[in-house]
Design a protein around this nucleic acid. Sequence first.
RNA 1: GCCGAAGUGGCGGAACUGGCAGACGCGCUGGACUCAAAAUCCAGUGGAGCGAAAGCUUCGUGUGGGUUCGACUCCCACCUUCGGCACCA
Length: 796
Amino acid sequence: METYDPKAIEAKWQHVWEDERAFYVDNPEPGEQPGDDFYMLEMLPYPSGNLHMGHVLNYTLGDVVTHFKRRQGLKVLRPMGWDSFGLPAENAAIKEGGHPREITERNIANIERQMRRLGWAIDWDRVIAAHDPAYYRWTQWLFLKFFEKGLVYRKEAPVNWCPNDQTVLANEQVINGRCERCGAVVESRKMEQWFFRITAYADALLKDHELIDWPERTKAIQRNWIGRSEGAELLFRIDELDVDVPVFTTRPDTVFGATFFVLAPEHPLVDTLVERSPKAEELRKYVRTAMAKRGEERAAADERTGVFTGLYVTNPATDAPIPVWVADYVLMDYGTGAIMAVPGHDERDRQFAERYGLPIREVVDEDGALVNSGQFTGLSAEEAKRAILEWLGERGRGRPAVNFRLRDWGFSRQRYWGCPIPIVYCERCGIVPVPEDNLPVLLPEVEDFRPKGKPPLASNEEWLHAACPRCGGPAVREADTMDTFVDSSWYFLRYVDPHNDQAPFERRLVDFWLPVDQYVGGIDHATGHLLYSRFFVKVLDELDLVGFREPFQRLFHQGWVRQGGSKMSKSRGNVTAPDELADMYGADAVRLYILFVGPADQAMDWTEEGVEGIARFLRRLWRIVGEARYASPDPQPDPEPSLLSRKAHETIARVSDDIGRRFVFNTPIAAVMELVNELGRDPAAPGARFAAETAVSLIQPYAPHVAEELWSRLGHERLWEQPWPVADESQLERETFELVIQVNGKVRDRVEASVQESEEDLVARATASARVQAQLDGREVRQAIVVPGKLVNLVV
RNA sequence: GCCGAAGUGGCGGAACUGGCAGACGCGCUGGACUCAAAAUCCAGUGGAGCGAAAGCUUCGUGUGGGUUCGACUCCCACCUUCGGCACCA
């Protein structure tokens, strides 16, 4: 038998699969009912030019599931696409020259070649790319639908501004508060930005967690991010101005302890207060300084600062006047931008009160009972929350309220390489959406896409000026582009109908394939992509474009792959590209190893010794399966149960359960190794051929090339279409088992016992054991615990 | 501070519903093959102690308690590491 040559075998079968379109899947015929379909999806890659090990883990895992489900008879959709808009290509173009489109398309070609080298079962007819006008046309179309529904709006919001480069920076371009490129201190500047009204779905996003099978930690991260808190909105009156100022609090029980009142510097009332204040100059200065700071700077300040306005509000519980301060520890974008300060029971308020000599009043004692709280004194804090709120409600001074930490999603990017926003600004009509018929608004081919004080598209005069679709008058286009997370918030819907030029997708096809049955991707997207996509689907559901509320039924996060074992770092500068590794060890070895090294959802280390071990296993498999074939040329499996056939059936059961139910991918490889080890002890033993075929069949989802080659050498065809093997229950049953004998819970002996034996027999055998007798040492057995088929525990 | 996850040999890990701790692999040790090396194959490999040997004893899953005939697994407290949120009122 010739030696195992992974490179040749892998090229051979990749051609066969492509020629036979083995892993392309047809859309359902009209009327075809869902049920035997499976949508396997991994997060689409940003085409950076090279695959890294994280991709290899992600897509190999998806590949194993794809093969497994296909061979279980399901119709599996497993597409691939490119998240191809975004900063890196644009930055590379600025740095190295060239155009982001050229760079992106070159990268896509390269990464696709690397993907093909690893032999993943992908339907390449369904490829989509975010930067393709045929795709972003529908991103724009969806934007218009959201706009019509009032779920997209424009408001002034702070951006990161580099005063030196005269440009807006993305968050990831701000390093420790400084511009990544020039090092200048980044400022907060207000600009008009587009927002998705995701906060309108805050409750739905929380509640619908119960509909989906996601890791608890991911749901927890989203819960944290959404940050729902229940409390009350209370009204504090400023008589002089004849206004009621609402505050949000989670502690209405402490309202009797509110001894002062604080407004955020951005609070709309502050301007009026400044005019009235005897300390107008000081206030104005304070507000200006506070507003120039970025959020992190304000949070990082050592000392709480603020200025007294000279005005008073009325505490609705005590009716006492309390002073109004402006302080930057109160944030405008949480709650109402105003707080009742309770220094007795809030650490921040206490620090502030101590610094400025404000009164501190205790209203809840150590036992959690109210004190100094009028008729509520004596109640527990919990009781008081309800009672005080009810009382204030009757007086028109309060009501229950819920607050969220979640903010609306600002998606304007002052960048070139993104999806244009289909909006024009008309001198007469204002903000006008581009009509659907005029989509796509094409991203123009500009020469200079450097941001310089205004978004790059704003410099393209020819493109910028357009006729107003409504009145025909002069108008300018929106020059910001969309955040790339908009592109990826609906891509999973486009895969079902990627060439449709009449609609983003056909509802019938979405109904058939969606929701995604299994989604795989990094947990780093928990508060981004995974939240945005859920929001999008909820809106699309309400628009009747889809008929479900959650896009991803089951979710799995692959762990981080660290690469830097000692050998590797010395000899090859720490990182070897996956396609190089495939050339060195074979794609099958790389695929197997990345799943063998540990549980797929935990961090793992790639080591060269490890992949060498797997390559060794594959050579062993090759040799032993070859030996078994020569020893047992008859392709019919041996009819009689044997040690090997039992082991094979056990392995089928373990692997199927691990992949199918437990969703673990390392232990099935160990199980197949055990089978191969057993076979290797005597490749001519009865059942050897069946064991060999089983090992090959079970390893196919992981190592499809070598499995296919061995399968054909075993005289069969098209392993990728073979039904997944099913364990024969009768061969899993045992007539005898190893009875574990414990004395006081410690193992003292093991004897062969029959499954027929009664509990009394087993106890008798246990007691009869010489080793047990030595342990008993004449003591009396008080109790015997029998676990049938497993053990006897004698208690003395 | 709040929320979440995880701590098992020299290393990666296995042990799923409480029932033989360390599967499988790496590494290491010894042997075979070889002029030699690589590759390959065979055997051994948690610690300590006893034994000439077969083998036996004992300790052992972050720490301390608890529940149980029996705990890596369940409960309580704590320690450490990692991740998320964080002037969030």
